[in-house]
Design a protein around this nucleic acid. Structure first.
Lengths: 189, 189
DNA sequence: GCGCACATGTAATTCGTTACATGATTAC
DNA sequence: GTAATCATGTAACGAATTACATGTGCGC
């Protein structure tokens, strides 16, 4: 009925009305943890959702030359989003630049690869830290347990993020330490 | 110097010469585990790699109306690929349809979500099984330990796959069991 | 005879990013 | 005054998929 981005946008509208600008902000955070889009793409997607009857808007005067539009979910949009949420996802098309680099790492200087991995480890540690703070905030207000609540849905995606960041870190550290040990004994031998 | 797909293709040529058709086959397996492309995209990319001096080809008569082309890596291609492999990857643009569904799962019937998760669990179990067979084959011939070897690079990407599939399964099962418990007590209450 | 593997190419379309364009209000 | 936030829109380009197009050789 719409594109995947369309469903991402509907998911925000299901929580509360948003302007296009607000949708773009949420596509950086928190949706940005699992879906991203530029504002140019979002405005076009919102128009198409309205055309398809899944969203509607009211206008208010905006600060610039265009009117501000507040978008809401229509009943048809809600039905369609609920249907989509429980439908089987297509097999993802993997695109992992990190693994592609490691696949070709045998051609490069191990010390250079170790430096690159150190950078990645730092980046993932940051991300994991952010997620853990968010989790602490959840837990402080009582761990969500009703699977029909918005809070539970948010919490479940957060736990996925924490798990995958931890696993990614574990693997990155194993690889870095293995490469470092091998290049050290190389230098010593 | 080229696109990410270009580096994926160069990575194959660094191992041995390939025809465009063979590159397409390897983009399904094993590169397909972390990068994918259709044959239409591959033929275009190969042309551009040749134009950029990173790959070269020799022609042989093909079975159909076009000549078969065997592509090899040039010295410039090898240098560029080694440089790229140790360069810091850009922050990935996350696109996870599964998480987007869970984010909206509070709108849907929990039993329908559980059924969808069961399907996903089966899919990941299959993938993990495949990876573990590949790993057993590696270990049977001695675990790779030289980080400058092609074998080690292949092995490292495989371990990443095993780790992430395991983690994904762990999370999927937690979510399914939690949803099932909640909808069971719902039906009983 | 039919389908599959081999082998390469083009065209149409969609998805997604980056850059360009306009302009008010608020904080430093 | 200058930058950031709010607010929406178009144009140009590149990345990626799907469909169309051609044709041999082999196994069933």
């Amino acid at each position: 009925m719409t594109t995947t981005l369309g469903y991402a946008v509907l998911g925000l509208l299901a929580r509360r009305p948003h302007s296009g600008y607000e949708v773009a902000a949420r596509m950086r955070t928190p949706i940005g943890y699992f879906w991203t889009a530029s504002h140019a793409q979002i405005h076009g997607t919102l128009s198409k959702l309205v055309e398809a009857g899944l969203a509607a808007y009211t206008t208010e005067p905006g600060p610039g030359p265009y009117d501000k539009k507040m978008y809401t979910l229509t009943p048809a949009g809600r039905t369609e989003l609920a249907r989509w949420a429980a439908s089987p996802p297509p097999a993802p098309q993997p695109r992992n630049e990190m693994l592609l680099r490691v696949y070709n790492g045998w051609l490069a200087d191990p010390a250079a690869v170790v430096a690159m991995l150190d950078g990645e480890i730092a980046r993932h540690r940051d991300t994991l830290g952010t997620y853990q703070e968010l989790r602490a905030a959840f837990d402080a207000n009582g761990t969500p347990d009703d699977p029909r609540s918005v809070r539970f849905a948010d919490y479940a995606t957060l736990l996925a993020g924490i798990g995958s960041e931890r696993e990614e870190l574990r693997w990155l550290k194993w690889l870095r330490d293995t490469l470092r040990a091998a290049s050290d004994s190389d230098g010593a031998g």
